[in-house]
Design a protein around this nucleic acid. Structure first.
Lengths: 144, 144
DNA sequence: TTCATATCGGACATTTTTATCCAATTAACT
DNA sequence: AGTTAATTGGATAAAAATGTCCGATATGAA
């Protein structure tokens, strides 16, 4: 499963992107309230997303975070996971073996293959824009 | 992803079941050597599997662990995960929301649905016997 | 009976993940 | 200039996961 940090990150981006589409900039506090996460911890995660050039940060009074529409449209779930966890989860072996591959399969390799395939396809194809535009009714997509 | 404890548990069971089919009982040390895991930690995990009645333990000299063939044939991957992690990972929401469901979906719910479906199917259907009999060449299945 | 070899169980140690706090910096506004 | 509101970054704390140690217990065999 995803780490909490990663879940917070994805939730944050859904919230930020939905607001950015409406032309609204949001603060860490607003994000944390919206996604029900610890503010200081969330702040650290947003910093990682800034470093990964996924979101823009504006310091000082009236500042906060927002996203460019072009980035909302091209950022895949996989990019988010990589920005936060450093590596991608989807490609890895079910049993955690680094040597596992089609050529050198672990005992569950081919049972797990279809799942990994689905996972890779999804994480690599679904964008933030897909998520937000598909689900404008959901709380995370509410504007501030 | 699975916890290390869970990965060790599954690996252990593959090794123990493969040996049990050959009529061989194995010790913690042999298990830990075979799956490359810390012996004392592995011991704790085996205790959980004993408590869950998946493996048999025989104390004292000449003792060790083994499995009944009937259990090898009916134990699914899901049972192992539940025995070690307490709860199942496969049914849970991608974003970790406990309230998420088909009726009350999170923003990524329906993107993730096919993956969860595949995961559930696999964990609920694949048995230890399937794994071991499918992959008798793999190191984990080597006899002691 | 004694010895050797196992698991079992509890306490403890280490590492990683998650979470908090606070001072420094930045920028808008009056 | 001063105040206020925001991010940034560093230090620290707490919790969870992973890993270790050792004495107690059980059992087969000399």
């Amino acid at each position: 499963m995803l780490s909490k940090a990663c879940q917070y990150g994805i939730k944050s981006l859904i919230f930020i992107s939905a607001n950015s589409i409406e032309g609204q900039r949001v603060t860490v506090k607003e994000v944390a309230d919206a996604i029900d996460s610890p503010p200081a911890f969330t702040s650290k995660i947003l910093q990682q997303l800034v470093a990964a050039q996924i979101i823009n940060s504006i310091k000082g009074s009236g500042g906060g975070f927002d996203m460019d529409l072009s980035v909302i449209k091209k950022t895949k779930i996989l990019h988010i996971v990589q920005a936060i966890e450093g590596d991608n989860i989807s490609a890895s072996c079910f049993l955690g073996l680094s040597s596992c591959s089609d050529r050198n399969p672990c005992p569950v390799h081919h049972f797990y293959a279809p799942i990994r395939q689905q996972m890779n396809d999804t994480l690599l194809n679904v964008t933030l824009y897909d998520i937000v535009s598909n689900d404008i009714q959901h709380p995370y997509c509410l504007r501030v």
